[in-house]
Design a protein around this nucleic acid. Structure first.
Ligand SMILES: [Mn+2]
Ligand SMILES: [Mn+2]
Ligand SMILES: [Zn+2]
Ligand SMILES: [Zn+2]
Lengths: 140, 140
DNA sequence: TTCCTTACTGAAAATCATTTTCAAATAGTA
DNA sequence: TACTATTTGAAAATGATTTTCAGTAAGGAA
């Protein structure tokens, strides 16, 4: 069983059917090392399953996001791209050169959020953190 | 001189003309306490200048962003909203209840970014940080 | 102040991404 | 194998944004 089959299982366990179209989308997104737009998923997945429709890509991404298997990636160039979701408390590190995505963990914003909460009177529930830089390849 | 006239000056200094349409947009966005979409800017600014066209709102927001007077706000509900830009190194704190926007400063991510840089080999250039919570009003 | 050039305007049309509709196909169970 | 609800892709609809264009007006020069 390839790892992407976990996603198919999850789809199945949630009452969704496993189809050739969904296999192609899942396989494409699961294996990606950078965030893909629906159009990019479509182009790549059609190499696996020619008859695929763009509409089905949108519909499948919607379900994968709903099951928290993928997450939307916000970038200066746009916010319509998706990547396999991180596990636990992780954030993204994006290469500004090639678009490669990495996850990292270990950020500790407790002191900061407590301080901001005190100063502003807000009850702070969540945070978004994203790092941008250049990967090893793109540095040279 | 109201504070929003600084923006008009900046437009002028950069070779753009000051028009009634731009005055209305600038005044609207400058005074906003939460991020506004182009349509929201249009609706509000038309109370000041009836003949305003939505197209001009888009065009003016584009210029204000280019001059770093406003910045785009990314939120779960969408990423097409703008707010007056913070000065210096600041980040946003957003109320999940009413959408109110606050800026804060004083985050220190140096230790974190150094650690991530070492682990991943990335050269880290930038970060996005955003806090979400409930403002004093929306807590009760 | 008046004149003149050029940037700016709003309406309408065009474009582009996403969503909806629908009839045919098919997954998955009985 | 037979059945039924889900899923499909094509086409149409939608909605946001951008482009086009002819008229308007800002603002420097005289
Ligand atoms: Mn975190
Ligand atoms: Mn910071
Ligand atoms: Zn790279
Ligand atoms: Zn609030």
């Amino acid at each position: 069983m390839t790892a992407s089959e976990t996603w198919l299982e999850q789809l199945h366990d949630n009452g969704y059917r496993i189809t050739a179209a969904r296999r192609a989308v899942v396989h494409t997104v699961f294996g990606a090392t950078h965030a893909l737009t629906p159009q990019e998923v479509y182009d790549a997945a059609r190499k696996i399953y020619r008859a695929l429709g763009l509409v089905t890509v949108y519909r499948t991404l919607e379900k994968l996001e709903e099951l928290h298997l993928i997450q939307r990636v916000h970038q200066p160039v746009g916010c319509q791209a998706f990547i396999a979701a991180g596990v636990g408390h992780q954030h993204l590190l994006l290469c500004q050169g090639c678009g490669q995505v990495e996850f990292f963990e270990g950020d500790d914003l407790d002191a900061l959020t407590r301080s901001i909460a005190r100063k502003t009177g807000y009850q702070i529930n969540e945070h978004w953190l994203q790092l941008f830089g250049l990967c090893m390849n793109c540095r040279s």
